[in-house]
Design a protein around this nucleic acid. Sequence first.
DNA 1: CATTTCACCTGGTGGC
DNA 2: TGCCACCAGGTGAAAT
Length: 283
Amino acid sequence: MPELPEVETIARGVHARLGGDRILEAWFGSHREPLKTPATRQARGLEGRTVRAVRRSGKHIVFDLSSPAGGGVLEERSGKAAAQWIVHLGMTGRLLVTTPDAPVAPHTHARLTLASGRELRFVDPRRFGRLEFRDLARGEGFSGPGAEPLIIEKGDFAKLFRGRRVAIKAALLNQALLSGVGNIYADESLFRAGIRPRKAAGRLTAAELERLRLALREVLLHAIRLGGSSVSDYVDADGVRGFFQLEHCVYQRGGEPCRTCGTLIRRVVVGGRSTHYCPHCQK
DNA sequence: CATTTCACCTGGTGGC
DNA sequence: TGCCACCAGGTGAAAT
């Protein structure tokens, strides 16, 4: 369900509520798909640690955790996390902060009991989401392979697409190039940059590439300001819907008139994903 | 290696 | 009402 702006909104919400809290107990359901780390090892890893920060990396939510003891002055000073809990929401994953007595929704795959008396739950009907524990004592911290679209600069952005024959739409969705862009914001940024989604990535001019980088940046920042897009039942950690769906120019608007020129928005399939564009505004 | 296709899941919607 | 086809914010493995 979530792309960069939704994940950013959720991470901020969870950080505000759980930052500084301590994990007392972790429970995992019987479905194996969501567990990149086996249930027992994941629970043992999480229990006793303090949540120092919750942040977004690409489409992943990263929980920076203290040592099991709870940190200590040395660790406080160093500012380094001792372990991480990595959550990917897939298409339908949600993180909910509740009280332990709140009814447990169907498809709840994880429940973390916290020292504050609250509970963090991971709910995911389709089970495309993933939960992973990383001990940083041995091994590296999480970092996606792709560049952050909000940070990348002109030259590096252009370099990503050089020589590529894939459609620019497919390239935008490739997380190894850019991390965080999904189907909504790929379509919306291409519309705002005036570029056809099927145009070969390596064929974009320098001007087009820079228009695309800036359009992507603007659309993501604007969406974060509005709390993300609520296409079906997406809600943030506080159960609040986003409002960016009201600003969609093309996404899921096939057959409707373009907001700029009135031409009917077209829906096609690119790289196996439904793709929406205005044949008049996008060249 | 780059690119394309498909499987992985459940649930909602709309047509007949 | 029931049944079925199709669609959905994502990814990663297998095939080409």
